[in-house]
C-alpha cells in the first residue's frame, strides 16, 4: 500500500454541529483570553489600547463569555447522539487508555512509538476534554458572580476571583497543549483539518482510532483498508 493512495480516501469524522460548536468555542475562548490578558499581567496592558479602553475590553469579554457557553447547546441540540457518545467515552476507561500515555510521550518527543488501539476519542483527547470541561465549569461558574456581584454574597464573589484565576492558568495550559498537538505536532495534524472540514484521511483514522474505525467498517460506513481487493483496485 502506498501512502498517497490511502490518504486520498477521506472518511467523515465530525458532524456539522460539532464542527460549528468546536469552532465557536475555540474563537470565543481565544478572544476571552486576549481580552483578559491585560488584567492578568501588566505586560499586556497595551491590549487595552487595541480594544479601545478597558470598558470595551470588558464588554467584548462579556459578549464572548456568552458565545463561549453556546456551543455546548449547539452540539447537544443538533447532534445529541454525538454529544452523548462523547460523554460516555469520557467516563469509559480501559487498559488501552492507560497504555496510550506511555506511547504518547514517545510520540510527543519524536521517538519511535506504536499505536495503541483507541475508540472515537483517544485517551489523550479524553483527558483534554475532562480538563476543559473542568476549566469551563470553573470559569463560567465564577464568571457569573464577577459579572453580577450584587446578586451574590460577597464571600462568593471573592472566591470567584480566585477560581476564575485558577481556571485561567489551568485552561491556558490545557488549551496550549491541545492546540500544539492538533496544529503543530505533525502526527496529529489531520485531526486539525478534520475538525474544520469534518473529514479525515481514512488511513490516519484507522491507525489512530482503530477500534472506532473497525466498528464503522462493520457497519459498512467506512472502506476496509485491509481488504486486498479494494487495495488492489485502488492501487491499479
Amino acid at each position: 500500500m502506498s501512502k498517497q493512495q490511502s490518504s486520498e480516501v477521506q472518511v467523515k469524522r465530525f458532524s456539522k454541529a460539532f464542527v460549528w460548536a468546536h469552532g465557536i468555542n475555540a474563537i470565543a475562548f481565544i478572544g476571552l483570553y486576549i481580552t483578559a490578558l491585560p488584567m492578568y499581567t501588566d505586560w499586556f496592558n497595551w491590549l487595552y489600547v487595541v480594544f479601545g479602553g478597558p470598558e470595551n475590553a470588558r464588554l467584548i469579554h462579556r459578549i464572548l463569555a456568552v458565545a463561549f457557553i453556546l456551543p455546548t447547546f449547539i452540539w447537544l441540540i443538533f447532534d445529541h447522539k454525538g454529544f452523548f457518545m462523547w460523554l460516555k467515552e469520557l467516563v469509559t476507561w480501559k487498559k488501552r487508555d492507560f497504555q496510550f500515555f506511555s506511547e504518547f510521550v514517545k510520540e510527543l518527543f519524536g521517538f519511535k512509538f506504536k499505536h495503541v488501539r483507541q475508540t472515537f476519542f483517544n485517551a489523550g483527547e479524553k483527558i483534554n476534554s475532562i480538563l476543559q470541561i473542568f476549566c469551563a465549569i470553573l470559569l463560567i461558574g465564577s464568571g457569573f458572580p464577577m459579572w453580577f456581584p450584587d446578586l451574590f454574597p460577597s464571600a462568593l464573589v471573592q472566591w470567584s476571583y480566585f477560581l476564575h484565576n485558577v481556571g485561567f492558568g489551568l485552561g491556558f495550559a490545557v488549551v496550549l497543549g491541545h492546540i500544539y498537538l492538533s496544529v503543530i505536532h505533525k502526527h496529529s495534524r489531520p485531526g486539525f483539518t478534520g475538525v474544520i472540514t469534518g473529514k479525515v484521511p481514512a488511513k490516519w483514522a484507522k491507525s489512530h482510532y482503530t477500534e472506532w474505525y473497525e466498528e464503522e467498517v462493520k457497519k459498512g460506513n467506512f472502506p476496509d483498508l485491509d481488504d486486498p481487493k479494494k487495495n488492489k483496485k485502488k492501487g491499479a
Partner: peptide, 19 residues
C-alpha cells in the same frame, strides 16, 4: 494561584517548545 498560574503557563510553553 496567580504566580503558580504564570509559572505553569510558562512551563507548558517551554515543554511544547522543547517537544
Amino acid at each position: 494561584a496567580q504566580p503558580i498560574g504564570k509559572a505553569m503557563v510558562g512551563g507548558v510553553t517551554m515543554a511544547l517548545v522543547g517537544a
